[in-house]
Amino acid sequence: MNNTVVRNIIRFFVLLAFQGLFLKRVSEGWVSNTLYINIFLYPLFIMLLPLQTPRTGVLLLSFLMGICVDMFYDSLGVHAAALTAMGYARALFLSLYEPREGYKLNALPTPADLGLNWFLKYSASMLGLHLLVYFSVDAFSPVYILGILTRTVFTFVATMIAILIFVFIFSPRR
């Protein structure tokens, strides 16, 4: 248990630093007038929290992570709003995709524990929601709906690839 907490704390800082210091610069170079590609790896922290994490804790951690990323992006509140929405929806998606025999005690939401198929469904739903909320709050007006959707689609594809690479390289066990 202790080990899990430490691992998650480390993952929090690693993902935060990776997002804020590296991915931010990388994807900024790719954004042009026609192409909108960002990579948002930090939601992975919320996705990989242990299944029995209390929902209140998930919400607070989401908000904290969001605010910290906002510090790097100088967009106070935007990432926080999106990630909090995702954190709240986590419990809904978990119960939606619950296997027939239920979740095993101490299981982690990873491909290793629950299968690649399950993880793809789970992470895609969470990420889709997160990006939609993020770009909506970023644009802040329904008149930009076309831009919101294109950005969401491009970023979704790029980020899903990054998430899978991360999950397979580090193969988180706890």
Binding site: L59, G77, A80
Partner: peptide, 20 residues
């Protein structure tokens, strides 16, 4: 949890409009 969620979202949006 829902109230906390609402509160955090509201807080985030207040930050959004105040600091962006």
């Amino acid at each position: 949890n829902f109230l906390l969620f609402g509160f955090l979202e509201l807080l985030a949006l207040v930050l959004v409009v105040n600091f962006n």
